[in-house]
Design a protein around this nucleic acid. Structure first.
Lengths: 199, 199
DNA sequence: TTGTCACTATACAAACCGGTATGTAGGGTA
DNA sequence: TACCCTACATACCGGTTTGTATAGTGACAA
C-alpha cells in the first residue's frame, strides 16, 4: 500500500498522536496566540512528548503551517455544510454570514484565526502565510460565485465589498465581544445584493 | 515646581531617553509584533540601558500600554490635521479614508496597530486593552459626528456601517499589500452617505 | 525470532525572556 | 560643598524558548 504522507511517521486517525497534537494546537493557538504557546506546553497538553511532536512536524513553524491548513480544510467543510441547504444566491450569501455568526456567539471568540495568525506571523517567509492567503482567496472566490449566480453585472466588485463588510464585522465583533456588527454587515450585504442584482 | 508626572523619572523632551524608547517601541512593535520584540533588543535599539527603560515604564506591559497611548495621541492629531481643511461632512468623511490611505501607501504597512495589538494581547487584564478600546471608540464617535453633521436620520447606524467598511478595508489591504480595498471602501462609504443624508 | 514502527521518558544544549542588584558618572541646584 | 536626579555599565537571577540526543517500551508483521 503506497500511503501518501508529506512528513512524519504517524497516521491521522481520530485518536492518533498526530491528530491530538493538531487538535490541541488548534485550541491553544486560537485561545492564547501562536507565539504565546510553547512547544513544551503544547506537547504536554496533547499528552505527547516533544520528540513525537518534532517527529511529526519537524519544527514549530511546520506545526503552525499544518495547523492552519487543517483549519482551512475544516473551514471549507463548514462553508459547504451551511450552504448545502441553500438554493438561491441570497440564501447562499446569508449562509456565509450565518456561518460566521455561529462562530461569534460561541464563547472564547477571538476573531478570525487566519487574520490573527497573519498578525502574529510577521516573517513574510513563514510557511503559514501561504495558507492564510489561500484561505482568504477561497472566501473571495466563494463570494464571487454567489454574485455571479445572482446575476450581478460586476460580480467580483460586489464580492469584494461583501468581503470588506464581513472582515470588518469580524474585527468589530471581536473587539466588542458582540455579534451585532455581523448582523449589521449581513443586512448591508443583502441590501447590496438586491441593489446590484435586482436593478 | 510641582511637576505632574504619572511614573518614571524622565521628561518627554524630543531627544530624551523616554521619548527615544517610545519612538523605538512604536517602530519595532509595529514592524515585528509586540511579543516578538524583547526588552533587551528594545533598549539596545533605543540606545538606552534596560535599567533606564524599567525606571521609566516599570514593566514591559507598562511600556506597551504607554506606547499605545502615545500612538492614540498621534492618531488623533493626524485625524484632526487631515480634516482641518474639510468643511462639508462629505469632505470630513473622505478625510478619514484619506488618512488611512496615506498610511497604507507607506511601505512596511502592516495594518492597524491597535487591532494588531488586540490580537497579540490575549490577556483581558492587560493595561493596553483599555487604550485599544478607547482608540476604537474615538473613531466611532468621530464617524458618528460626521453622520450627524450630514443630517443622517440615524447617525450611529451609518457610522457603524462606515466603520465596518473601514476596518474591513484595512484588514484586506494588509493581507493583499494593496490600497484598493481602501478606495473601494471609500467609495462605498460616500455612496452610503448620499443615500442616507440625501434621501 | 527478529525487525520495524510509533511512541515514551529523560536529559540536555544554547539562546533568549522579563526583571533586578550594584555601583558610577555628570549635571543642576541649594 | 553636598545633594539629587538621570542615565550609564555590568553582571546576574530564575525561568522559558526551540530543538536534539539517547535509551527504552509495546505492538505488529514477516
Amino acid at each position: 500500500m503506497v500511503e501518501t504522507k508529506q512528513s512524519g511517521p504517524g497516521t491521522s486517525e481520530p485518536g492518533s498522536a498526530r491528530q491530538r497534537i493538531l487538535d490541541t494546537a488548534s485550541r491553544l493557538f486560537y485561545e492564547s496566540g501562536i507565539r504565546a504557546v510553547g512547544v513544551n506546553t503544547l506537547a504536554a497538553r496533547a499528552g505527547v512528548t516533544k520528540v513525537t511532536l518534532y517527529a511529526h512536524f519537524g519544527s514549530k513553524d511546520g506545526l503552525v503551517a499544518e495547523h492552519l491548513a487543517e483549519r482551512d480544510r475544516r473551514w471549507r467543510e463548514t462553508l459547504a455544510r451551511v450552504s448545502a441547504a441553500s438554493e438561491t444566491a441570497e440564501q447562499r450569501l446569508s449562509a456565509v454570514f450565518d456561518g460566521y455568526e455561529e462562530w461569534t456567539v460561541a464563547d472564547g471568540f477571538r476573531g478570525c484565526g487566519f487574520v490573527n495568525a497573519g498578525v502574529e506571523l510577521t516573517d513574510p517567509e513563514h510557511p503559514g502565510r501561504e495558507i492564510i492567503e489561500r484561505n482568504k482567496d477561497g472566501i473571495r472566490t466563494w463570494l464571487t460565485e454567489i454574485a455571479e449566480a445572482a446575476g450581478c453585472p460586476d460580480p467580483s466588485d460586489v464580492a469584494e465589498e461583501w468581503f470588506l463588510l464581513l472582515e470588518g464585522a469580524v474585527v468589530r465583533a471581536t473587539l466588542r465581544q458582540d455579534a451585532t456588527p455581523l448582523h449589521r454587515a449581513h443586512r448591508a450585504a443583502l441590501r447590496l445584493l438586491r441593489e446590484e442584482a435586482g436593478g
